[in-house]
């Protein structure tokens, strides 16, 4: 079974309806480590050796965060800056993360329609996530398509429940170490990918 590490960053978690629901669904799942960065490092003083150890112990790395200003909250960026060290995560000697899988799980207020060339945001989610994609690649990781909960302002309780169980199913799926082909055909990921690239 693939071990999954969820790096979760939300500066105001207790006020986020969507993330509370998503986290509630997957927290405590066997084989899944939920790592609440804002709870652990309120002072932004990230324990780099500890984070490296965590990364080494897992096969799938998930960056879960709200999509603030088309990017992640600052602590997540701090984490990237501090933990993904040259000579460890990248560079000719940096092989620690090689061949691991990585994906972004994001929540955003804008709807899917807003995230396209014709929409208010002009670009798709996938395009906005390029820095994350390239970060993962530079570290030798396979960057999977994102899992995105969009239009969170409008989402109903019912829809939220659906998203939560989809999220759980996605984790189940990833735990089974699916092949690249299978991943690309996975329904939810494929859907978003397809629709985003339109």
């Amino acid at each position: 079974m693939q071990r999954i590490l969820i790096l979760f960053a939300h500066p105001r978690f207790e006020h986020s309806r969507t993330n509370t629901r998503l986290v509630q669904q997957i927290r405590g799942k066997t084989g899944v480590t939920f790592h609440d960065l804002y709870e652990r490092y309120p002072d932004f003083n990230i324990d780099v050796p500890y984070e490296k150890r965590l990364l080494e112990e897992h096969d799938v790395i998930i960056w879960q965060h709200p999509f603030y200003w088309y990017s992640c909250p600052p602590l997540m960026k701090q984490w990237i800056d501090l933990v993904l060290e040259f000579g460890w995560a990248y560079g000719s000697q940096g092989n620690a993360l090689k061949n691991k899988r990585c994906l972004s799980v994001i929540t955003a207020g804008g709807t899917l329609e807003a995230y396209c060339a014709e929409g208010d945001n002009n670009y798709s989610i996938k395009e906005f996530l390029r820095p994350f994609e390239q970060t993962a690649r530079l570290c030798g990781m396979e960057y999977l398509p994102p899992f995105a909960v969009l239009g969170t302002h409008k989402v109903s309780i019912q829809e939220l429940d659906d998203f939560a169980s989809q999220y759980e199913r996605l984790l189940d799926f990833l735990q089974e170490e699916p092949t690249g082909k299978k991943v690309n055909n996975y329904k939810f990921l494929k859907n978003l990918q397809k629709r985003n690239s339109n």
């Binding site: 780099v48 800056d81 501090l82 060290e85 040259f86 000579g87 560079g91 000719s92």
Partner: peptide, 12 residues
């Protein structure tokens, strides 16, 4: 702090 320090990168 090695962080945000490009010295190592530069050397490499």
């Amino acid at each position: 702090d090695k962080q945000w320090d490009s010295e190592l990168l530069r050397l490499a």
